[in-house]
């Protein structure tokens, strides 16, 4: 029971404070999403502090990606594996508070100036970059499966179904899971 709630390393308020502060700092550097900070997070919790092993860190990311919801939840799994529930709370709060405050301030600032030349130039200029980033993200996500035919067929299949039908994405994810579980994606 103790293991479940306080993680393998035991709970220590100093560790929690360090987790909160470090993840908070990373949150403010996380342009392009939380996953872009994963390499630095790994450097900190695996390399510098030795709180987790490499395999534990990688599996933390994999668990979060297997679950529904925002990818940022992987920081909660990292925190959980270090210091249980309190650790998950510390890493998640650290990752969300600074960037959330900034996002709210920015949207209010932007809304008040929505017709200004500067804001129009910003949204028009960033639109193609955002599309390019989405395509890049999709491309990077294909990396682990690029060497086998099954998943390579799953990618265009998914794109076609999303563009041509109203089917909910969750069914496509289910198809992917079944195809993969049957070993066809191996």
């Amino acid at each position: 029971m103790n293991d479940l709630f306080f993680g393998v390393h035991g709970q220590d308020s100093g560790v929690l404070l360090q987790l909160f502060l470090h993840f908070g700092l990373l949150s403010l550097l996380a342009i392009g999403g939380a996953i872009t900070t994963a390499p630095d997070m790994q450097r900190y919790v695996v390399g510098k502090q030795g709180w987790l092993s490499d395999a534990q860190f990688t599996s933390s990311v994999a668990i979060a990606q297997a679950a529904p919801g925002p990818n940022v939840l992987f920081v909660a799994v990292v925190g959980w594996n270090i210091a249980g529930l309190a650790g998950a709370a510390a890493t998640l709060a650290g990752s969300l508070l600074p960037s959330a405050t900034l996002a709210l301030a920015a949207t209010r600032f932007g809304d008040e100036r929505s017709d200004s030349r500067g804001m129009r130039a910003f949204t028009a200029g960033m639109a193609p970059l955002t599309l390019g980033l989405l395509l890049a993200t999709g491309w990077i996500l294909t990396e682990p499966v690029r060497d086998s035919v099954g998943p390579l067929l799953l990618v265009p299949f998914t794109v076609a179904m999303m563009l041509k039908t109203k089917i909910s994405p969750i069914w496509l994810v289910a198809v992917g899971a079944v195809v993969g579980a049957l070993g066809l994606a191996g």
Partner: peptide, 8 residues
């Protein structure tokens, strides 16, 4: 395997 398929 399921995770790989879901990733694709």
């Amino acid at each position: 395997g399921a995770l790989r398929g879901m990733g694709a």
